[in-house]
């Protein structure tokens, strides 16, 4: 067991090193500093500030994601940004779209 981070900040989990989103491990408040950890060994990747209230299990952007570019979780594309997403933004159906169902339509 390696628990590398001892600070009191709330946590978000980056599931894979290539991901541009992380998952909130508790409810995050707008303006709050968040510690982003790797899921494999919980090492702190960096600290970012939440731009929105983000519920447990929801996603926070780890970098700016331009419109029409890939949102990546588990190293794989989970959708496309439909508007400019900034680092710290809540990432969900209001700013990304499923490429899969999109293609089927």
């Amino acid at each position: 067991m390696s628990i590398a981070v001892k600070n009191k900040l709330k946590k978000a989990l980056q599931m894979s090193g290539n991901d541009n989103v992380a998952i909130a491990l508790s409810d995050l408040q707008q303006g709050e500093k968040i510690s982003v950890l790797t899921s494999s060994d919980r090492a702190e990747v960096r600290v970012i500030t939440a731009n929105d209230d983000i519920s447990f299990g929801h996603k926070i952007a780890l970098e700016n994601i331009a419109s029409d570019t890939k949102v990546v979780k588990y190293s794989y594309k989970i959708g496309l940004a439909i508007k400019m997403i900034h680092e710290g933004d809540h990432v969900h159906v209001h700013n990304i779209v499923s490429q899969y169902l999109h293609e089927k339509e």
């Binding site: 979780k73 989970i78 959708g79 990432v91 899969y100």
Partner: peptide, 18 residues
């Protein structure tokens, strides 16, 4: 699924087959 934070079928499926 949406309320829980999953935004797309890709995200849900990847989370399952992991």
């Amino acid at each position: 699924n949406y309320l829980g934070g999953l935004s797309s079928i890709e995200e849900k499926a990847l989370g399952a087959v992991l």
